[in-house]
Design a protein around this nucleic acid. Sequence first.
DNA 1: TTTTTCGTACAGTTTATACTGTACAAATTT
DNA 2: AAATTTGTACAGTATAAACTGTACGAAAAA
Lengths: 160, 160
Amino acid sequence: MNEQQNENITNKIILEFGKTIEMFDLTPLEARLFAFLYLNEKALTLDEMSEALGKSKTSMSTSVRSLVDFNLVTRVWKKGVRKDLYQANFQLFKSFMPTYINKWIDATNHQLGSLEEIKGKLKQDNYEDNKELTIIKKRLNKIIDFHLEVEKSFRDMKKD
Amino acid sequence: MNEQQNENITNKIILEFGKTIEMFDLTPLEARLFAFLYLNEKALTLDEMSEALGKSKTSMSTSVRSLVDFNLVTRVWKKGVRKDLYQANFQLFKSFMPTYINKWIDATNHQLGSLEEIKGKLKQDNYEDNKELTIIKKRLNKIIDFHLEVEKSFRDMKKD
DNA sequence: TTTTTCGTACAGTTTATACTGTACAAATTT
DNA sequence: AAATTTGTACAGTATAAACTGTACGAAAAA
Protein backbone atom coordinates (compact mmCIF):
# COMPACT_ATOMS: atom_id res chain seq x y z
CA MET A 1 0.00 0.00 0.00
CA ASN A 2 2.77 2.34 1.00
CA GLU A 3 5.01 1.25 -1.80
CA GLN A 4 2.18 1.37 -4.27
CA GLN A 5 1.21 4.85 -3.14
CA ASN A 6 4.72 6.25 -3.58
CA GLU A 7 5.16 4.62 -6.94
CA ASN A 8 1.91 6.09 -8.13
CA ILE A 9 2.93 9.61 -7.24
CA THR A 10 6.41 9.10 -8.60
CA ASN A 11 5.01 8.02 -11.92
CA LYS A 12 2.81 11.07 -12.20
CA ILE A 13 5.72 13.37 -11.52
CA ILE A 14 7.95 11.50 -13.95
CA LEU A 15 5.30 11.88 -16.62
CA GLU A 16 5.03 15.64 -16.26
CA PHE A 17 8.62 16.44 -15.48
CA GLY A 18 9.68 14.21 -18.32
CA LYS A 19 7.75 16.28 -20.82
CA THR A 20 9.67 19.36 -19.81
CA ILE A 21 13.02 17.60 -20.02
CA GLU A 22 12.22 16.42 -23.52
CA MET A 23 12.11 20.05 -24.55
CA PHE A 24 15.81 20.22 -23.82
CA ASP A 25 16.33 17.79 -26.69
CA LEU A 26 16.48 14.58 -24.73
CA THR A 27 14.69 11.45 -25.93
CA PRO A 28 11.54 10.40 -24.08
CA LEU A 29 13.37 7.61 -22.32
CA GLU A 30 16.31 9.75 -21.30
CA ALA A 31 13.85 12.29 -19.97
CA ARG A 32 11.89 9.79 -17.90
CA LEU A 33 15.07 8.21 -16.66
CA PHE A 34 16.45 11.51 -15.48
CA ALA A 35 13.18 12.38 -13.77
CA PHE A 36 13.19 9.01 -12.05
CA LEU A 37 16.76 9.38 -10.86
CA TYR A 38 16.05 12.87 -9.65
CA LEU A 39 13.19 11.69 -7.47
CA ASN A 40 15.42 9.15 -5.77
CA GLU A 41 17.72 10.30 -3.09
CA LYS A 42 20.18 7.48 -3.33
CA ALA A 43 22.14 6.43 -6.35
CA LEU A 44 20.68 3.60 -8.37
CA THR A 45 21.91 0.65 -10.39
CA LEU A 46 21.07 -0.20 -13.98
CA ASP A 47 18.94 -3.08 -12.76
CA GLU A 48 16.92 -0.85 -10.49
CA MET A 49 16.29 1.60 -13.31
CA SER A 50 15.37 -1.19 -15.67
CA GLU A 51 12.97 -2.64 -13.15
CA ALA A 52 11.38 0.71 -12.33
CA LEU A 53 10.90 1.96 -15.89
CA GLY A 54 10.14 -1.43 -17.38
CA LYS A 55 12.79 -1.11 -20.06
CA SER A 56 15.74 -3.30 -20.94
CA LYS A 57 19.04 -3.01 -19.16
CA THR A 58 20.69 -2.18 -22.46
CA SER A 59 18.44 0.82 -22.85
CA MET A 60 19.34 1.97 -19.38
CA SER A 61 23.01 1.58 -20.10
CA THR A 62 22.92 3.72 -23.22
CA SER A 63 20.47 6.25 -21.84
CA VAL A 64 22.31 6.80 -18.60
CA ARG A 65 25.53 7.14 -20.52
CA SER A 66 23.95 9.95 -22.53
CA LEU A 67 22.81 11.63 -19.35
CA VAL A 68 26.34 11.45 -17.99
CA ASP A 69 27.67 12.92 -21.23
CA PHE A 70 25.18 15.77 -20.91
CA ASN A 71 26.40 16.37 -17.36
CA LEU A 72 22.98 15.68 -15.94
CA VAL A 73 23.86 12.53 -14.06
CA THR A 74 26.94 11.48 -12.14
CA ARG A 75 28.41 8.10 -11.56
CA VAL A 76 28.82 7.50 -7.89
CA TRP A 77 31.15 5.26 -5.92
CA LYS A 78 30.08 3.43 -2.84
CA LYS A 79 32.25 1.07 -0.86
CA GLY A 80 31.28 -2.54 -1.02
CA VAL A 81 28.89 -2.02 -3.92
CA ARG A 82 30.04 -3.70 -7.05
CA LYS A 83 27.47 -2.40 -9.48
CA ASP A 84 27.69 1.01 -11.09
CA LEU A 85 25.63 3.62 -9.32
CA TYR A 86 24.16 6.72 -10.91
CA GLN A 87 22.68 9.80 -9.38
CA ALA A 88 20.99 12.84 -10.89
CA ASN A 89 22.66 16.18 -10.40
CA PHE A 90 20.41 18.15 -8.10
CA GLN A 91 20.92 21.63 -9.48
CA LEU A 92 18.31 21.46 -12.20
CA PHE A 93 18.48 24.91 -13.65
CA LYS A 94 22.25 25.00 -13.76
CA SER A 95 22.35 21.57 -15.32
CA PHE A 96 19.88 22.18 -18.08
CA MET A 97 19.68 25.82 -19.00
CA PRO A 98 23.29 26.86 -19.65
CA THR A 99 23.93 23.79 -21.76
CA TYR A 100 20.84 24.47 -23.77
CA ILE A 101 21.70 28.10 -24.30
CA ASN A 102 25.23 27.23 -25.31
CA LYS A 103 23.93 24.76 -27.79
CA TRP A 104 22.01 27.54 -29.51
CA ILE A 105 24.95 29.90 -29.41
CA ASP A 106 27.35 27.33 -30.79
CA ALA A 107 24.98 26.29 -33.52
CA THR A 108 24.15 29.80 -34.69
CA ASN A 109 27.82 30.72 -34.65
CA HIS A 110 28.66 27.73 -36.74
CA GLN A 111 25.94 28.49 -39.27
CA LEU A 112 27.08 32.08 -39.32
CA GLY A 113 30.50 30.89 -40.39
CA SER A 114 29.09 28.84 -43.24
CA LEU A 115 26.89 31.68 -44.42
CA GLU A 116 29.73 34.20 -44.32
CA GLU A 117 31.77 31.81 -46.36
CA ILE A 118 29.09 31.68 -49.03
CA LYS A 119 28.87 35.45 -48.96
CA GLY A 120 32.62 35.76 -49.37
CA LYS A 121 32.64 33.45 -52.33
CA LEU A 122 29.89 35.47 -53.96
CA LYS A 123 32.02 38.60 -53.72
CA GLN A 124 35.30 37.06 -54.74
CA ASP A 125 34.26 35.14 -57.81
CA ASN A 126 32.71 37.75 -60.03
CA TYR A 127 29.52 35.99 -60.83
CA GLU A 128 27.47 37.12 -63.75
CA ASP A 129 25.17 39.57 -62.08
CA ASN A 130 21.49 39.28 -62.75
CA LYS A 131 18.32 40.38 -61.06
CA GLU A 132 17.79 37.10 -59.30
CA LEU A 133 21.29 37.00 -57.91
CA THR A 134 20.92 40.50 -56.55
CA ILE A 135 17.89 39.38 -54.59
CA ILE A 136 19.67 36.30 -53.31
CA LYS A 137 22.51 38.46 -52.06
CA LYS A 138 20.09 40.74 -50.30
CA ARG A 139 18.34 37.85 -48.66
CA LEU A 140 21.60 36.25 -47.66
CA ASN A 141 22.47 39.37 -45.75
CA LYS A 142 19.11 39.29 -44.02
CA ILE A 143 19.67 35.67 -43.09
CA ILE A 144 23.05 36.53 -41.62
CA ASP A 145 21.47 39.36 -39.64
CA PHE A 146 18.87 36.94 -38.38
CA HIS A 147 21.55 34.60 -37.11
CA LEU A 148 23.26 37.48 -35.36
CA GLU A 149 20.03 38.47 -33.67
CA VAL A 150 19.28 34.95 -32.53
CA GLU A 151 22.78 34.49 -31.25
CA LYS A 152 22.54 37.77 -29.37
CA SER A 153 19.24 36.80 -27.79
CA PHE A 154 20.66 33.65 -26.32
CA ARG A 155 23.88 35.36 -25.33
CA ASP A 156 21.87 37.94 -23.40
CA MET A 157 19.94 35.15 -21.75
CA LYS A 158 23.14 33.95 -20.18
CA LYS A 159 23.74 37.20 -18.35
CA ASP A 160 21.59 36.37 -15.34
CA MET B 1 25.07 28.60 -66.87
CA ASN B 2 23.35 31.50 -65.24
CA GLU B 3 20.48 29.39 -63.99
CA GLN B 4 22.82 26.67 -62.85
CA GLN B 5 24.96 29.16 -61.00
CA ASN B 6 22.03 30.66 -59.09
CA GLU B 7 20.61 27.29 -58.24
CA ASN B 8 23.92 26.17 -56.88
CA ILE B 9 24.20 29.10 -54.53
CA THR B 10 20.57 28.85 -53.54
CA ASN B 11 21.06 25.22 -52.58
CA LYS B 12 24.03 26.02 -50.41
CA ILE B 13 22.10 28.69 -48.55
CA ILE B 14 19.07 26.46 -48.17
CA LEU B 15 21.27 23.79 -46.66
CA GLU B 16 22.76 26.07 -44.02
CA PHE B 17 19.74 28.22 -43.30
CA GLY B 18 17.63 25.09 -43.12
CA LYS B 19 19.72 23.70 -40.31
CA THR B 20 19.02 26.76 -38.22
CA ILE B 21 15.32 26.67 -38.93
CA GLU B 22 15.16 23.04 -37.82
CA MET B 23 16.25 24.21 -34.40
CA PHE B 24 12.94 26.01 -34.14
CA ASP B 25 11.25 22.61 -34.18
CA LEU B 26 10.39 22.41 -37.84
CA THR B 27 10.92 19.21 -39.79
CA PRO B 28 13.83 19.09 -42.23
CA LEU B 29 11.51 19.48 -45.20
CA GLU B 30 9.57 22.36 -43.69
CA ALA B 31 12.86 24.03 -42.93
CA ARG B 32 14.24 23.66 -46.44
CA LEU B 33 10.95 24.74 -47.92
CA PHE B 34 10.87 27.90 -45.89
CA ALA B 35 14.45 28.70 -46.78
CA PHE B 36 13.66 28.18 -50.42
CA LEU B 37 10.60 30.41 -50.32
CA TYR B 38 12.54 33.05 -48.45
CA LEU B 39 15.17 33.22 -51.16
CA ASN B 40 12.56 33.82 -53.82
CA GLU B 41 11.15 37.26 -54.19
CA LYS B 42 7.94 36.27 -55.86
CA ALA B 43 5.30 33.94 -54.51
CA LEU B 44 5.50 30.35 -55.68
CA THR B 45 3.11 27.54 -56.53
CA LEU B 46 3.11 24.02 -55.11
CA ASP B 47 4.38 22.71 -58.42
CA GLU B 48 7.31 25.08 -58.43
CA MET B 49 8.24 24.06 -54.90
CA SER B 50 7.87 20.41 -55.76
CA GLU B 51 10.06 20.83 -58.80
CA ALA B 52 12.71 22.82 -56.97
CA LEU B 53 13.02 20.61 -53.90
CA GLY B 54 12.43 17.34 -55.73
CA LYS B 55 9.66 16.24 -53.39
CA SER B 56 6.09 15.25 -54.07
CA LYS B 57 3.36 17.80 -54.43
CA THR B 58 1.57 16.23 -51.50
CA SER B 59 4.58 16.87 -49.30
CA MET B 60 4.60 20.48 -50.41
CA SER B 61 0.93 20.82 -49.67
CA THR B 62 1.23 19.56 -46.11
CA SER B 63 4.52 21.30 -45.41
CA VAL B 64 3.45 24.67 -46.68
CA ARG B 65 0.24 24.36 -44.70
CA SER B 66 2.30 23.87 -41.55
CA LEU B 67 4.37 26.91 -42.40
CA VAL B 68 1.20 28.94 -42.82
CA ASP B 69 -0.07 27.67 -39.48
CA PHE B 70 3.19 28.72 -37.87
CA ASN B 71 2.77 32.19 -39.40
CA LEU B 72 5.97 31.84 -41.32
CA VAL B 73 4.45 31.84 -44.78
CA THR B 74 1.53 33.72 -46.29
CA ARG B 75 -0.83 32.75 -49.02
CA VAL B 76 -0.85 35.39 -51.68
CA TRP B 77 -3.44 36.38 -54.26
CA LYS B 78 -2.56 37.44 -57.75
CA LYS B 79 -5.05 38.31 -60.46
CA GLY B 80 -5.27 35.88 -63.31
CA VAL B 81 -3.30 33.19 -61.47
CA ARG B 82 -5.34 30.17 -60.67
CA LYS B 83 -2.90 28.25 -58.54
CA ASP B 84 -2.30 29.01 -54.90
CA LEU B 85 0.73 31.17 -54.30
CA TYR B 86 2.83 31.18 -51.17
CA GLN B 87 5.41 33.60 -49.95
CA ALA B 88 7.72 33.58 -46.94
CA ASN B 89 7.26 36.31 -44.38
CA PHE B 90 10.32 38.50 -44.62
CA GLN B 91 10.74 39.52 -40.98
CA LEU B 92 12.72 36.51 -39.89
CA PHE B 93 13.42 37.33 -36.30
CA LYS B 94 9.89 38.44 -35.56
CA SER B 95 8.49 35.38 -37.25
CA PHE B 96 10.60 32.81 -35.50
CA MET B 97 11.76 34.04 -32.16
CA PRO B 98 8.60 35.20 -30.38
CA THR B 99 6.73 32.08 -31.39
CA TYR B 100 9.51 29.93 -30.14
CA ILE B 101 9.76 31.77 -26.84
CA ASN B 102 6.01 31.60 -26.35
CA LYS B 103 6.09 27.92 -26.98
CA TRP B 104 8.47 27.50 -24.07
CA ILE B 105 6.48 29.78 -21.84
CA ASP B 106 3.21 28.04 -22.63
CA ALA B 107 4.69 24.61 -22.16
CA THR B 108 6.36 25.38 -18.83
CA ASN B 109 3.20 27.04 -17.57
CA HIS B 110 1.17 24.05 -18.49
CA GLN B 111 3.56 21.65 -16.77
CA LEU B 112 3.57 23.95 -13.79
CA GLY B 113 -0.17 23.52 -13.54
CA SER B 114 0.07 19.74 -13.61
CA LEU B 115 2.80 19.70 -11.01
CA GLU B 116 0.93 22.05 -8.68
CA GLU B 117 -2.04 19.78 -8.98
CA ILE B 118 0.01 16.80 -7.87
CA LYS B 119 1.39 18.86 -5.02
CA GLY B 120 -2.10 19.89 -3.96
CA LYS B 121 -3.30 16.34 -3.94
CA LEU B 122 -0.36 15.32 -1.79
CA LYS B 123 -1.38 17.87 0.80
CA GLN B 124 -5.09 17.26 0.69
CA ASP B 125 -5.19 13.49 0.92
CA ASN B 126 -3.28 12.71 4.08
CA TYR B 127 -0.96 10.12 2.70
CA GLU B 128 0.84 7.86 5.02
CA ASP B 129 4.03 9.75 5.59
CA ASN B 130 7.29 7.96 5.23
CA LYS B 131 10.86 8.88 4.61
CA GLU B 132 10.62 8.28 0.89
CA LEU B 133 7.55 10.42 0.50
CA THR B 134 9.20 13.27 2.34
CA ILE B 135 12.01 13.23 -0.18
CA ILE B 136 9.60 13.09 -3.08
CA LYS B 137 7.81 16.14 -1.75
CA LYS B 138 11.05 18.01 -1.40
CA ARG B 139 12.07 17.14 -4.93
CA LEU B 140 8.67 18.05 -6.29
CA ASN B 141 9.11 21.53 -4.89
CA LYS B 142 12.51 21.76 -6.52
CA ILE B 143 11.04 20.68 -9.82
CA ILE B 144 8.36 23.34 -9.54
CA ASP B 145 11.03 25.94 -8.78
CA PHE B 146 12.92 24.77 -11.83
CA HIS B 147 9.89 25.32 -14.03
CA LEU B 148 9.44 28.79 -12.59
CA GLU B 149 13.04 29.63 -13.34
CA VAL B 150 12.85 28.36 -16.89
CA GLU B 151 9.63 30.21 -17.50
CA LYS B 152 11.17 33.39 -16.13
CA SER B 153 14.22 33.05 -18.34
CA PHE B 154 12.13 32.91 -21.46
CA ARG B 155 9.80 35.62 -20.25
CA ASP B 156 12.78 37.91 -19.73
CA MET B 157 14.00 37.05 -23.18
CA LYS B 158 10.87 38.60 -24.59
CA LYS B 159 11.60 41.99 -23.09
CA ASP B 160 13.84 43.19 -25.88
C1' DT C 1 41.40 -21.68 -11.76
C1' DT C 2 36.69 -21.90 -12.33
C1' DT C 3 32.41 -19.70 -11.85
C1' DT C 4 29.51 -15.94 -11.49
C1' DT C 5 28.21 -11.18 -12.26
C1' DC C 6 28.30 -6.78 -14.60
C1' DG C 7 28.21 -3.50 -18.43
C1' DT C 8 27.97 -2.83 -23.17
C1' DA C 9 28.71 -3.92 -28.35
C1' DC C 10 26.13 -5.49 -31.89
C1' DA C 11 22.50 -7.33 -34.68
C1' DG C 12 17.92 -7.66 -35.14
C1' DT C 13 13.13 -6.14 -34.24
C1' DT C 14 9.59 -3.05 -33.25
C1' DT C 15 7.61 1.41 -33.48
C1' DA C 16 7.32 6.08 -35.11
C1' DT C 17 8.08 9.51 -38.74
C1' DA C 18 8.56 11.15 -43.34
C1' DC C 19 7.22 10.75 -47.74
C1' DT C 20 4.73 9.11 -52.16
C1' DG C 21 0.94 7.84 -55.40
C1' DT C 22 -3.71 7.30 -56.26
C1' DA C 23 -8.09 9.08 -56.04
C1' DC C 24 -11.42 12.46 -55.76
C1' DA C 25 -14.07 16.82 -54.71
C1' DA C 26 -14.10 21.62 -55.89
C1' DA C 27 -13.14 25.03 -59.00
C1' DT C 28 -12.05 26.64 -63.62
C1' DT C 29 -11.90 26.31 -68.58
C1' DT C 30 -13.56 24.77 -72.98
C1' DA D 1 -22.35 19.99 -69.85
C1' DA D 2 -17.89 17.91 -70.52
C1' DA D 3 -13.12 18.14 -69.80
C1' DT D 4 -9.21 19.79 -67.42
C1' DT D 5 -6.72 21.43 -63.53
C1' DT D 6 -5.76 22.13 -58.62
C1' DG D 7 -5.25 20.97 -53.73
C1' DT D 8 -5.57 17.57 -50.37
C1' DA D 9 -7.37 13.17 -47.91
C1' DC D 10 -6.05 8.75 -47.36
C1' DA D 11 -3.64 4.48 -47.60
C1' DG D 12 0.36 2.50 -48.33
C1' DT D 13 5.59 2.46 -48.51
C1' DA D 14 10.23 3.77 -47.20
C1' DT D 15 13.27 5.51 -43.95
C1' DA D 16 14.81 6.57 -39.34
C1' DA D 17 14.66 6.15 -34.37
C1' DA D 18 13.92 3.58 -30.28
C1' DC D 19 14.32 -0.45 -28.03
C1' DT D 20 15.40 -5.57 -27.03
C1' DG D 21 18.04 -9.98 -26.59
C1' DT D 22 22.07 -12.43 -27.18
C1' DA D 23 26.78 -12.70 -26.62
C1' DC D 24 31.04 -11.69 -24.74
C1' DG D 25 35.13 -9.43 -22.38
C1' DA D 26 36.45 -7.65 -17.94
C1' DA D 27 36.24 -7.84 -13.21
C1' DA D 28 35.02 -9.94 -8.90
C1' DA D 29 33.79 -14.02 -6.13
C1' DA D 30 34.09 -18.72 -5.09
